[in-house]
Design a protein around this nucleic acid. Structure first.
Lengths: 182, 182
DNA sequence: ATTATTCCATACAGTGGTGTACTGTATGGA
DNA sequence: TCCATACAGTACACCACTGTATGGAATAAT
């Protein structure tokens, strides 16, 4: 059995994430997705019960893949704690995953179940940051403060529109991250 | 002339901002606003050309009022630079203005004209932060880094869902702000 | 080659929202 | 008193999008 899917489920999810990143959950329209995929909605409603089901699937894949993905990459590339923090402060913010992240973060403000998922992911990440900073910050309060600042930096960077007088954004990110390491 | 307005223009804007804060620009529906105001859309289309015009008006009032409002308050309440920074780090984040702010910030990601407005506002604020930090940071790079960190903290705080192990969020905010003052 | 299964197209009904044209009403001023 | 102004109501045409029912095409296993 199992004919190879011409437009498999994952394709819809992929395109759905793109739409989500670009315009938020309201922009995830099945007929729009169908059009960009060159397919009719008949395909969609074979894979998914309804639009709501796709939205759920988008959150599932993000929570599952996107959450530990960054941590895994940092763990692989970084050497010591300081180096990993530097990576987090500079390579993570311009990641292509961020737009999805931001859309979900905004979504969470008006949807409790989304907020709950986000809380889980954020907690995992904050936990990771805490361990990194704790490796050279004896004071737990200090580690918590720095973790919060680095996390904030990574999130806010994308949605901060200001230009910096004499530096590029990348330079300012590096400066800010360095500040958290001293 | 000028019969007393029963549902003046400002009422629509006020309610529009509420809707914007709660659900983003897509949630600003004229018929919904009319319903919550206990009026039909006939009134709306007297004040505004169309829905787009209301959205523009919302951005106008935010850019005009909301931009310098925070700075003015800090200037009024704070004594020296350090004190003002402490205020910014702790009283601004939980401000009732933030939901509107966040909605617009997300909106700016997908609308160039909104992004342009946001850039103007952000630049003013970053400029203000720079002057504050410069008052006790001789190194301009250092001042820039700290400004960026404080701004990020204020923005990200609202959309950060993580819970902190042993502290309340307010405590962590105070810790983080303090870190930027040393 | 046949057939079951998987996938997609098409047509249709329904809904929620916009904008418009027109009518109705309260209020203050000449 | 009469009228202009400033609203508000009603009805309608018109999308954009959802979901459903059903038929048909493509593919893999036999």
């Amino acid at each position: 059995m199992a004919a190879t899917a011409r437009t498999p489920r994952d394709t819809w999810i992929e395109e759905g994430l793109r739409a989500l990143a670009a315009g938020g959950p309201d922009a995830v329209r099945v007929d729009v997705l169908a059009k960009t995929l060159g397919v009719t909605r008949g395909s969609f409603y074979w894979h998914f019960k309804n639009r709501e089901a796709l939205l759920e699937a988008l959150l599932d894949t993000w929570e599952q893949k996107g959450a530990d993905q960054i941590i895994a990459r940092i763990e692989a590339e970084g050497t010591d704690a300081r180096d990993k923090i530097r990576l987090l402060g500079t390579v993570v913010p311009p990641s292509p995953l961020m737009p999805v992240e931001l859309a979900i973060r905004d979504w969470a403000r008006r949807d409790l179940t989304v907020a709950e998922r986000l809380r889980r992911v954020d907690n995992r990440r904050m936990g990771y940051l805490r361990t990194l900073f704790s490796s050279f910050c004896p004071d737990p309060d200090d580690a918590e403060a720095r973790s919060m600042l680095l996390f904030s930096l990574a999130i806010a960077n994308q949605s901060l529109a200001a230009v910096h007088s004499t530096h590029s954004r990348a330079e300012v990110l590096a400066l800010a991250t360095q500040h958290l390491l001293t």
